[in-house]
Design a protein around this nucleic acid. Structure first.
Lengths: 155, 155
DNA sequence: TGCTATTAAATAGCACGCGATGTAATATGC
DNA sequence: GCATATTACATCGCGTGCTATTTAATAGCA
């Protein structure tokens, strides 16, 4: 048996205690966030990952599958079926690029562009659900982005 | 078109810009974290959610499914098949409680208890992958726990 | 030109995570 | 004591997210 120390003790060491772990805090907060989004996105007919794809396309239309993947840290394995569902919903179109037949270009349909109006209220609703100040949220975001970069580097 | 303001502007308002969003930072950091864990847990034959269940059981053995669920914020829909897989791996046993036949009591097997030794190195490896100071990690964890509580309240 | 390597996306299979629903055991109310 | 409600799990179906593999198109190069 090795000695367990909590991260609150004088000489903190990583432990197997669930309550101590940043990772579980991250994981379970993500579950909570998903719950909030599920409720908000239900009226838009979107899941959270689908919403993320729409956010990307509302910023810049006509992207390759892999370009969307780069922005969202997802690969074609995840995106291909997701994009087919968005296509089936009538929000996007998938067309092979003429210049390079390997590429599938994702384009917003009129309906997909129109959905942006309904989505405008989502960030505000999520903001309210967090009960945080903008400063707190920006601070957490920036710390997370730093952590994300390091985790990807060491993955 | 409504005016978009970034959260860096003087009067911050929640926006549809991906790069601005705490939620995407949380989501994508979770993906990165999962990558790190997958590599570490592969030699233990565990997924991250399975690892979480083992953490709970290593702290306290002989728990009901719903007690594990309460600790991990997961319900029987997720846990039942997961626990069956852990049972198939020989790490836990599932037995109906005599006092209340509705309850399924989860018990560690000898092999499940033994796995704790191999798991001892995991938190340290993850800690290294974060390249953060313990103080930074504790601070992020506590901010996340606060956020989690608020999100569950408003879900 | 023709052969090989690389790239973009898709497919198959597995493991979550959850909403909706079902089932069996226990608790409650009259 | 018996009908009803509640509780604890389980089942079904769907949508990710990933590993391993496949297919088709393009690039590179002798």
């Amino acid at each position: 048996m090795t000695t367990q120390r909590t991260s609150r003790s004088r000489n903190p060491k990583p432990s197997l205690l669930l309550s101590e772990q940043l990772c579980f805090a991250l994981y379970s907060t993500m579950l909570a966030l998903n719950k909030v989004y599920r409720k908000l996105l239900r009226k838009l007919g979107l899941t959270y990952p689908q919403y993320l794809v729409m956010l990307v396309l509302w910023e810049r239309d006509e992207l390759m599958v892999s370009e969307i993947g780069t922005r969202l840290f997802l690969d074609s394995t995840t995106l291909t079926p997701l994009l087919k569902r968005l296509e089936a919903s009538g929000l996007i179109a998938r067309t092979r690029a003429a210049s390079d037949e390997r590429q599938v270009i994702i384009t917003l349909t009129r309906q997909g562009r129109a959905l942006k109006q309904q989505a405008q209220e989502v960030p505000g609703s999520v903001f309210c659900a967090t009960e945080c100040t903008p400063e707190e949220l920006v601070s957490m975001r920036d710390h997370l982005l730093l952590l994300r970069a390091k985790l990807f580097k060491n993955a």
